[in-house]
Design a protein around this nucleic acid. Structure first.
Lengths: 194, 194
DNA sequence: TTTATTTCTTAATAAACATCAAGTGGATTA
DNA sequence: TAATCCACTTGATGTTTATTAAGAAATAAA
């Protein structure tokens, strides 16, 4: 299992000493999800952070019997359920693998021990949240005030593998439109291209 | 000027020692904005954090000549331009006072010095970002997948003073609808109530 | 106070998007 | 192989929301 890519990402945020890393690594476990396998379910409290080595996870909540997709996580993503992990309240969201997915799993407790033990990790913790936060703010800005077609184009541009790997209905829900409408948008775009 | 409310908020997140606080206070300055006065403009890099003692600030960006409102900050809010402050890139957003507004202003540099000097402040920094992030995530969830009327009701419920203090067109833009449409929603709601 | 100016409302029309219903094609299973 | 299922497409129709334009009501300026 490839711990190195995780290390690289963290190093890119702030430096980590070798003994800190070795200490941290002890807490890792690994998990392989099949297609459509559930990672976390709503109403659970999220007590783990994961790193996606390979694969793809989406998350959604239920609104009047419909699944509303709120996020997509590709390989090299580090994430948890932000609200539940930080506030220790039950998840609203469900997390499901769209492909066979390989994960590094790190217990929340382990992370907080690292924060206590090393100032550098406390900083890493801050900077990782800052990073997540700015990314999510930017995504919001790209969506806000735009029509469905613009949102779709902006999403496709930011995630090249998206169309091949994510079913239309998941993308549609993520964009807050119906599958039928997205299908028509695609048709319109393909016509205007040729 | 009331530094105590700021202190209370921070203490609510994680404990601060008296000498840490006194050190921190040295960096404070104070600013009073008139109605419609600009706090920060787009293309500037945001190098300050502010605390709103009294008043109200909104922010927006320009899209095809229209102002698109993305945030509202009421008294007791602590904020900066997330993207610009953290990544030190130019702001996309403009920040303007909707009322006479009194602020505590803290330079970014000062904050980062506090982070270096005190582990407790590094933690405070992390927890403040976590707090901001979870709040923004929750707001997104309240909006996502909802029609304009539901979004309006959810917003009004979360901010009681809103209707009296924020002009309709600002609220409409924040909800991503036209002022005309919000006006009709209000009419419909007032009719169905009586 | 009177005049501007802005904010809000209302109506008619148009665009964006949803819903319902049916059909196609590919993949999975019996 | 046929039957079943699922993802996607297409069309007809309805709802939501935007646009344009005009007028009323509130605010600010003269």
């Amino acid at each position: 299992m490839d711990k190195q890519s995780l290390k690289n990402i963290l190093q890119g945020v702030t430096p980590i000493l070798e003994d800190e890393w070795q200490n941290f690594e002890q807490y890792f476990s690994f998990r392989r999800l099949n297609k459509n396998e559930i990672l976390w379910k709503e109403n659970e409290v999220c007590n783990h952070l994961v790193f996606i080595n390979t694969g793809l996870i989406y998350c959604f909540y239920n609104k009047d019997g419909k699944e509303i997709v709120t996020n997509l996580y590709f390989e090299n993503s580090i994430f948890y359920d932000d609200y539940s992990f930080i506030r220790q309240e039950p998840c609203v969201l469900n997390y499901v693998a769209l492909e066979v997915t390989e994960l590094i799993v790190i217990p929340r407790i382990a992370l907080y021990e690292m924060f206590d033990k090393y100032k550098s990790f406390e900083r890493l913790g801050r900077m990782m949240v800052e990073r997540n936060h700015t990314i999510s703010i930017k995504e919001q800005l790209n969506f806000n005030g735009n029509k469905a077609e613009e949102k779709y184009l902006s999403l496709v541009a930011s995630q090249p593998g998206l169309i091949q790997r994510v079913p239309l209905k998941i993308i549609a829900s993520y964009l807050n439109i119906t599958p039928e409408h997205l299908s028509r948008i695609r048709k319109k775009l393909s016509v205007s291209q040729s």
